[in-house]
């Protein structure tokens, strides 16, 4: 492989703690084209540490684009300029020598900054706890092939289930709405027969929790879909709207 190095200027958001005032800090780096952007920050951090300076705090884990841990806003776009990848999969060959790259954390009231580029996305977990499951206990379930599901429906449910919970949809949305995330989960279960018994109950609970966690409303800009590393479709949002309105209108439960 012909190793080519890029000389770049990084402008990285630094913030000491949740209540501290943050600002951008400039760094000059030289990085191989074959590196990922996170490897570039690894290198930078190793250098900073060697100099006795505080490294840049950011989160990542699998570095294969599936765990949803990493999430940086690169030049104004969550997960950077290349569609359908997570930050960890963004390779430096997509930049040009001499570029300036702005690196910011996901910004939303519901995702408070913990430190530098690390944010708290636990709001997603609270939403999932409110109803993101099929209430089956371990054991006592029917044989797997007793529930035939058409290939198309299964594929659509899978596409919704492919969500990695990274929060890029919230970060991309000008309203910091979590509709794409929530609708993906709601859709997975509302498409599958296993999810039917709780279908209308689930959507009400999850939407209510979503609102409570401080996410904004959807205004259909579809920025979420454009930035989603897994290409989750806004059709899921439509499906959730439909289910929600139907549930609100027809459910006899006055408590929810």
């Amino acid at each position: 492989m012909d190793e080519k190095n890029l000389n770049l200027t990084l402008k990285i958001w630094r913030q000491a703690g949740p209540t501290s005032v943050g600002s951008f800090q400039d760094f000059k780096v030289s990085v191989s084209e074959d590196s990922s952007i996170l490897e570039m920050i690894d290198d930078l951090n190793n250098e900073l540490e060697g100099d006795g300076k505080e490294p840049v705090t950011f989160e990542s884990d699998c570095r294969e684009g599936i765990c949803g841990t990493c999430g940086l806003v690169i030049n104004g776009q969550p997960h950077g300029p290349i569609p359908k990848i997570a930050t960890c999969q963004l390779h430096m060959r997509n930049f040009k020598n001499g570029d300036t790259i702005w690196i910011e954390p996901f910004r939303a009231k519901a995702f408070p900054i913990i430190k530098d580029l690390m944010v708290d996305r636990s709001g997603f977990d609270r939403i999932m706890e409110s109803g993101g499951y099929v209430s089956v206990n371990t054991g006592g379930v029917p044989d797997a092939n007793e529930i035939p599901i058409s290939k198309d429906v299964a594929a659509e449910a899978f596409d919704a289930a492919a969500c990695i919970g990274c929060g890029a949809c919230v970060a991309a949305c000008k309203n910091a709405s979590a509709m794409l995330f929530v609708s993906a989960k709601v859709s997975q279960f509302s498409l599958l027969p296993q999810g039917q018994p709780e279908r209308y109950d689930r959507v009400q609970k999850m939407v209510m929790k979503m609102d409570e966690m401080g996410f904004g409303s959807c205004t259909n800009t579809y920025a979420c879909e454009a930035e989603c590393p897994k290409g989750i479709s806004i059709k899921n949002i439509a499906r959730m709207n439909r289910d929600y309105i139907k549930a609100r209108a027809t459910s006899e439960n006055l408590e929810v």
């Binding site: 030049n75 104004g76 910011e104 000008k174 454009a226």
Partner: peptide, 18 residues
Amino acid sequence: NKKARPVNYAVNGSSKNS
């Protein structure tokens, strides 16, 4: 919705996604 996103990004990338 403004309150849900109180801080804006330094670089506005929204023209690329909406």
